[in-house]
Amino acid sequence: MFALGLIGLLVRRNLLFILMSIEVMLNAAGLAFVAAGARWGQADGQVMFLFILAVAAAEVAVGLALLLRLYHRFQSLDADAADEMRG
């Protein structure tokens, strides 16, 4: 699933899809943690998933705010539109 998120990140130009892909990747990482925690009977895995949850929430909030601003600016959700800082 992590790999799928990765593919989404690379393929889609739409910022919305990129953000969703990132969500998928975070979720996959969390799943891996929980699975590992369950496998070895450790609470740490679930603790880490909680942290990932917090990170995901924060990331989505900021990411969507940025997305809104970019849309206002470029009238498009094209991630490649914001390439003004290229070398």
């Binding site: 990765l6 990140l9 690379l10 130009r13 990129i18 991630a79 490649d80 914001a82 390439d83 003004e84 800082m85 290229r86 070398g87």
Partner: peptide
């Protein structure tokens, strides 16, 4: 030349 400014490229 690698600094394209494209997020997917960096990813």
């Amino acid at each position: 030349t690698t600094e394209t400014g494209r997020v997917r490229w960096y990813a």
